[in-house]
């Protein structure tokens, strides 16, 4: 269906109706997101701490909060850790997801259905439940992971405390997020693969293209739009892992070495009551997210135009 047949013909005259229809949604967005956003931008340029909690008017400090951030070692540590965690986890997710999609495409119906049901169950598990399960799996005393690893000859994982060391803590967090997010990537890429027409592939085979060439020259380019969209989404989503990190920290350590941006902001704001600094960090997070999102939204709109 072409874009123009969709209503443009019905409403030739100018009317206020569409504006009335979007007013409720816009009001809801202004209330829940717009107001906090504006407050946050203002507060990021103010000294807003405990004294202001008790009624003292906040002072304008210009870029002082951001200046304090730039010279704060802990902020940089958290920022670098978050970005690193995000990039590694997102790429791992997309890689595994693509491999599983290719696998689904290469096997019979029964095996594919088995794999799909298993992936759906993982995808459907709520984040709080999923994180709790992983805490139990990696429990140092009774966890099944330590038990199974310990069975391997020459490996001593008895009572290994996965959540007690930053590196293994983030390893567990990363595995958890990959486990939760791969199903979406696998299904999206698999849907893209099924759009690659059999005729084109057969024609290529007749023209002498081998298996690897068919992947590289035909399937690759055809699924590239889907790939770039899922990668962008993963990058955005893996920056917001407050739920997983908070729960893993509940079971592990309270130390700041285990913080990512979300838990760091929470600590600054809700625990230390330094709302000026918390707002400044929040704005950094929003800017990073919007920069990645902009590319995603552009892709999405371009695709939308093509498919309609």
């Amino acid at each position: 269906m072409s874009a123009t047949s969709n209503g443009a013909r019905i409403a030739p005259r100018r009317t206020g109706v569409p504006y009335l229809l979007i007013v409720p949604a816009i009001l809801a967005l202004l209330l829940g997101l717009g107001y906090p956003l504006v407050w946050q931008f203002i507060t990021a340029f103010q000294e807003y701490g405990l004294a202001q909690q008790f009624g003292k008017a906040p002072d304008w400090v210009g870029f002082a909060n951001f200046g304090a951030l730039v010279s704060d070692g802990e902020f940089w540590a958290v920022l670098v850790r978050s970005l690193l965690f995000c990039v590694v986890t997102a790429f791992a997710t997309v890689l595994v997801g693509v491999l599983l999609a290719l696998l689904m495409n290469a096997i019979g119906r029964a095996a594919r259905l088995t794999l799909q049901i298993s992936l759906l169950l993982a995808w459907a598990t709520p984040v709080a439940a999923a994180t709790t399960i992983f805490i139990w799996l990696f429990d140092r005393r009774r966890g099944v992971v330590n038990y199974l690893l310990d069975l391997l000859p020459g490996v001593d994982m008895n009572r290994y405390d996965w959540l007690g060391h930053p590196l293994t803590f983030f390893f567990v967090a990363s595995i958890l997020i990959v486990w939760m997010s791969v199903p979406f990537v696998a299904f999206a890429v698999y849907a893209g693969l099924t759009q690659v027409s059999e005729e084109v592939l057969e024609a290529a085979q007749l023209d002498g293209a081998g298996g690897w060439q068919r992947y590289r020259l035909i399937i690759g380019p055809m699924i590239r739009p889907v790939l770039s969209i899922v990668l962008l989404l993963q990058l955005i989503w893996d920056l917001r892992v407050f739920a997983q990190i908070t729960l893993l920290k509940d079971a592990g350590s309270k130390s700041g070495d285990f913080d990512l941006l979300g838990t760091y902001i929470y600590k600054l704001g809700a625990s230390a009551n330094d709302f000026g600094m918390a707002s400044a960090v929040s704005i950094v997070v929003l800017i990073i997210t919007l920069a990645i999102s902009w590319v995603y939204v552009r892709d999405l709109l371009a695709q939308d135009k093509e498919t309609r």
Partner: peptide, 12 residues
């Protein structure tokens, strides 16, 4: 796309 983490202090 806005992350809850980027706004929750203001919402609080």
């Amino acid at each position: 796309m806005l992350p809850a983490e980027g706004l929750f202090i203001a919402q609080y």
